[in-house]
Simulated scan of single mutants.
Amino acid sequence: MHDLTGFQRDLLYVIAGLEEPHGLAIKDELEDYYESEVNHGRLYPNLDTLVEKGLIEKGELDRRTNFYTLTRRGERELDARQDWEAQYVTV
């Protein structure tokens, strides 16, 4: 997880929090959080990178729409990240 950008980590968190989200649902969630537009040229290449790294899987809803889910590795990486953060941040 140390080799991911902050944006890629945010993608993992959003995908973990939604049930099989499609690209536009992920985009909407991030735009709400960032309070600015997330363009397709940023979103989809980063999703593809996460697929290549084995952190998420891409499925097909229909010929035009893909959905994304965390892999077991992605879940383990998020858990490890949360444990690491918890060492330094207590709320």
Rank of each mutant, 00 (worst) to 15 (best):
M1H: 01
L4H: 04
L4R: 04
L4P: 01
T5I: 08
T5H: 06
G6M: 11
F7D: 00
Q8C: 10
L11K: 14
L12S: 00
Y13H: 06
Y13K: 03
A16W: 02
L18K: 15
E19M: 14
E19A: 15
E20M: 13
H22Y: 15
L24P: 07
L24F: 13
A25V: 13
I26M: 05
K27S: 05
K27G: 02
K27W: 05
L30T: 03
L30S: 01
E31P: 05
E31S: 09
Y33M: 13
E35H: 03
S36K: 12
N39D: 12
N39A: 07
G41V: 08
L43F: 09
L47Q: 07
L47F: 08
D48A: 09
D48E: 11
V51S: 02
E52R: 12
K53H: 08
K53M: 08
K58H: 03
K58D: 02
G59P: 03
E60P: 03
L61R: 09
D62I: 12
R64F: 15
T65P: 10
F67G: 03
T71V: 04
R73W: 01
G74T: 02
E75R: 01
R76K: 15
D79A: 07
D79Q: 02
D79K: 00
R81N: 06
R81S: 00
Q82S: 06
D83K: 14
D83A: 13
W84C: 07
W84L: 14
W84N: 14
Q87L: 10
Q87H: 07
V89P: 02
T90I: 15
V91F: 07
